[in-house]
């Protein structure tokens, strides 16, 4: 009986706790049994129905809080919360979301730091939303393991095959504020990893001119003392300068969030930014041929 429960947990979390390391669900085939799990980047086109959805890439290294962030977003949406006038209707990737909620809960309880997204696991999650006026809008979220992005810092081959970043409408870069405000060596390591990542993405032309990006400093509840607050102010400046230099423009916004606090204002602002539809390109006025004919004749 106990083993069965453990098996179920393994399937939900995508891990094999007996091995001691996260096992790739796709590699061992378990993930393929799950209906409504996250999908891979090669399946991005399958989400396109009548229009191309908004694609948001969550970028960051291991333990920066991406999955906790996603888990909270999902939990709030299924409680019928409304962001930018849009509420959650459906998802094709419920299991992917549920898995992240499970991880978030585990992290909350501090029971394990091994149950998290693992390298190579499918990362594309979708949210179908409906506006108060009844218009539908779909958001795709890419939530990859931090190890994936760590590999990007050292290998052009890994970056070359990336389809998410180059197609993204919004890039959300995560930084672990708790780690960043520790000693200088830890901060330098964060800077070094992001410099490596951004340089390779830039070299491979993965960051498009039209993409927007924001920076999200997580675990802000752990940055309490005056000394750490000061460090954070200083380090945010340094990091954002590196992003600006590599991406060619300043971030739209820099947020400080606590992803485990469902009422956190800044967190809700980031969710709002993610959920809100893209500003649609104005349609050619010639499409309204009756209006055109009237204008021409009058």
């Amino acid at each position: 009986m106990g083993e069965q429960v453990e098996d179920i947990i393994n399937i939900i979390t995508g891990t094999d706790s007996t091995s001691g390391t996260g096992t790739n669900t796709n590699a061992n085939g378990i993930g393929q049994l799950l209906f409504c799990d996250a999908r891979s980047q090669s399946e991005l086109n399958d989400f396109i129905d009548s229009e191309r959805p908004k694609l948001v890439a969550l970028v960051g290294f291991a333990n920066y809080g991406k999955s906790t962030f996603i888990g909270t977003l999902y939990e709030l949406l299924i409680q019928n919360l409304n962001y930018s006038g849009y509420s959650f209707v459906d998802s094709d990737t419920y299991v992917g979301f549920e898995r992240r909620v499970f991880l978030r809960r585990n992290n909350d309880e501090d029971t394990s730091d091994t149950k998290r997204n693992v390298l190579g696991e499918n990362d594309i999650l979708n949210l179908m939303l409906r506006s108060n006026e009844g218009k539908f809008h779909q958001v795709l979220l890419s939530d990859r393991s931090g190890e994936t992005y760590l590999k990007y810092t050292s290998s052009d081959d890994e970056v070359k095959d990336d389809l998410v970043i180059e197609n993204a409408d919004l890039l959300v870069f995560f930084v672990d504020a708790e780690a960043d405000t520790q000693n200088l060596a830890v901060h330098n390591l964060i800077v070094e990893k992001y410099e490596g990542l951004l340089t390779r993405l830039k070299a491979q032309h993965k960051i498009t001119a039209s993409v927007s990006y924001i920076m999200v400093f997580t675990k802000i509840d752990k940055v309490v003392s005056d000394e750490r607050r000061e460090k954070l102010t200083d380090r945010k400046k340094k990091l954002s300068a590196i992003f600006t230099e590599n991406i060619g423009k300043e971030p739209d916004q820099i947020y400080e969030v606590n992803s485990t606090d469902l009422n956190h204002d800044a967190l809700n602002q980031v969710f709002e930014k993610i959920i809100s539809p893209l500003t649609s390109v104005e349609a050619a006025k010639e499409l309204d041929w009756v209006r055109m004919e009237i204008e021409k004749q009058k």
Partner: peptide
């Protein structure tokens, strides 16, 4: 095209339609 009156933004292939 009357079906899209006042709601042209989501129309695909706009150049072709014109």
């Amino acid at each position: 095209a009357v079906l899209r009156k006042g709601d042209w933004n989501v129309l695909l292939c706009q150049k072709w339609i014109i």
